[in-house]
Amino acid sequence: SHCAGCKEEIKHGQSLLALDKQWHVSCFKCQTCSVILTGEYISKDGVPYCESDYHAQF
């Protein structure tokens, strides 16, 4: 499978399933500020955001 963030193949190591896609753990980050999302996040149109950036933009 391929990472939804960087589009590279996910080989051995940690990956996560979010928004119905596979991601490298380090690629699942806020679209705006690039903080790596480990806990709470909000998505809009399949794109992840941290809570503060989501509320600031939408």
Score class of each variant (00 low, 15 high):
A4W: 12
D53M: 01
L37A: 04
K11R: 10
I42T: 13
Y54D: 08
S15V: 13
A4Q: 14
Q31T: 08
E40A: 14
H12P: 14
Y41K: 03
Y54H: 04
V35N: 15
E9R: 11
C33M: 01
D45K: 08
L37Q: 02
D45C: 07
K44D: 13
Q31P: 15
T32P: 01
C3D: 00
V35H: 05
S43N: 11
C6M: 02
T32W: 12
T38F: 07
F28D: 02
G13C: 06
I36K: 14
Q57G: 12
I10F: 08
C3L: 01
L37K: 01
S43A: 14
C30A: 02
D45M: 05
S34E: 13
K44P: 03
W23C: 00
C33D: 02
Q57M: 11
Q22G: 10
W23T: 02
H55Q: 15
G5Y: 14
Y54F: 06
H55M: 13
C6N: 01
E8A: 14
H2N: 15
H24C: 07
S34N: 12
G39S: 09
A18H: 07
G13H: 10
V47S: 07
L37Y: 00
S52L: 07
G39Q: 13
Q22I: 13
S34P: 01
A18Q: 10
Y41N: 04
I42S: 14
E9N: 11
Q22E: 09
H2T: 14
E51Y: 14
V35R: 10
C33L: 00
Q22A: 13
C3S: 01
I10K: 01
C30L: 00
S52W: 04
E51T: 06
E9H: 11
Y41R: 04
Q14Y: 04
L16N: 10
P48R: 02
L19W: 05
Q22R: 08
K11I: 11
S43E: 15
H12K: 13
E51G: 09
H24R: 01
H55I: 11
F28N: 00
V47G: 06
S52V: 11
C3I: 01
S26A: 14
K11D: 07
V25M: 14
K7M: 06
K44H: 12
E9M: 14
E40K: 08
S26D: 14
D20L: 05
H2C: 03
D20C: 05
K7H: 10
V35G: 11
H55L: 09
H12Y: 07
A18E: 09
C50T: 01
E40D: 13
Y41W: 12
F58V: 12
C50L: 00
G5F: 05
L37T: 05
C27I: 00
V47C: 08
F28L: 08
G39I: 04
W23V: 04
V35F: 06
G5Q: 06
Q57T: 07
Q14G: 08
C33F: 00
G5E: 04
C3E: 01
S43P: 10
E51L: 09
G39F: 04
F28C: 01
E40T: 05
K44L: 08
Q14N: 07
E9V: 08
P48I: 05
I36T: 12
S43H: 05
I10W: 02
E8L: 10
S26G: 13
V35W: 01
Q22K: 14
S26C: 13
D53C: 06
A56Q: 12
V25E: 15
E8Q: 08
Q57Y: 09
S52Q: 09
K7F: 09
C6R: 01
S15Q: 13
K11S: 13
A4P: 10
V35E: 10
W23E: 04
D20F: 04
S26K: 14
D20N: 14
F28Y: 03
H55V: 11
D53G: 04
S26Y: 11
S26M: 11
G5L: 08
Q31V: 11
V25W: 12
S52C: 06
V47W: 08
A56R: 15
E51H: 06
D53S: 04
L17H: 08
T38N: 07
Q14C: 04
L17C: 11
S52E: 13
K11V: 12
H55G: 10
D53H: 15
S43F: 06
D45P: 01
K7T: 14
I10E: 02
K11E: 07
D53Q: 04
E51A: 09
E9K: 09
H24K: 02
Y49K: 02
A18P: 02
Q31S: 06
Q31H: 13
L19T: 07
S52R: 12
C27L: 01
K44G: 07
F58D: 15
H12D: 15
T32G: 11
V35M: 06
S34H: 14
L19H: 03
Y49Q: 04
C27Y: 00
T38H: 10
A4E: 02
C3F: 01
K7Y: 13
Y41C: 07
D45R: 07
D45A: 12
A4F: 15
E8W: 05
W23I: 02
E40R: 08
E40H: 11
Q14L: 04
Y41M: 07
S15K: 15
S15I: 15
E8K: 13
S34G: 13
E51I: 03
D45N: 11
A56F: 15
V47K: 07
H2L: 11
A56P: 08
Y54K: 12
L37M: 06
D45F: 07
V47L: 11
G5C: 05
I36G: 09
A18T: 07
E8H: 14
H55W: 11
T38W: 03
H24Y: 01
C3V: 00
F28T: 03
S52D: 15
K29Q: 12
C6F: 00
S43T: 09
C50R: 00
S15F: 04
E40M: 04
Q14T: 10
L19K: 08
K29E: 02
C3H: 01
F58Y: 02
K29Y: 02
I42Y: 13
A56Y: 11
S43D: 12
A18W: 03
C27F: 01
T32D: 15
S15G: 15
H55A: 14
P48E: 02
L17T: 08
A4L: 09
L17Q: 12
G46R: 05
Q22N: 09
S52H: 06
Y49I: 05
C50E: 01
T32A: 09
V47E: 06
I42N: 08
K44V: 07
T32Y: 05
L16V: 12
C6Q: 02
C50Y: 02
L37C: 04
C50P: 01
A56S: 10
G46L: 04
S1T: 08
C27Q: 03
H12M: 12
F28S: 01
L17I: 09
D20P: 05
Q14K: 08
C30S: 00
S34F: 14
K7D: 10
K11M: 14
K29D: 02
V47M: 09
Q22S: 13
L19V: 12
H55Y: 08
P48M: 05
Y41H: 05
S1G: 11
H2Q: 09
C6Y: 00
L37S: 03
C6S: 01
P48F: 05
Y49E: 03
Q14P: 09
C6K: 02
F28H: 04
I42E: 15
C6G: 01
H55R: 13
Q22H: 14
E8M: 13
C30H: 00
C33H: 02
Q14E: 13
S1K: 14
S43C: 10
E8F: 09
I36A: 09
H24S: 03
L16M: 13
S15E: 15
S1Y: 08
C6H: 01
K44Q: 13
L37I: 07
L16H: 15
C3M: 01
D20W: 03
Y54S: 10
A18S: 09
F58S: 06
D45Q: 08
W23H: 03
Y54V: 05
E9D: 11
C50H: 02
G13N: 03
L16K: 13
I10R: 02
Y54L: 05
Y41A: 05
E40P: 13
I10T: 10
Y54A: 09
G39K: 12
E8C: 02
K21S: 15
Y49F: 05
S15T: 11
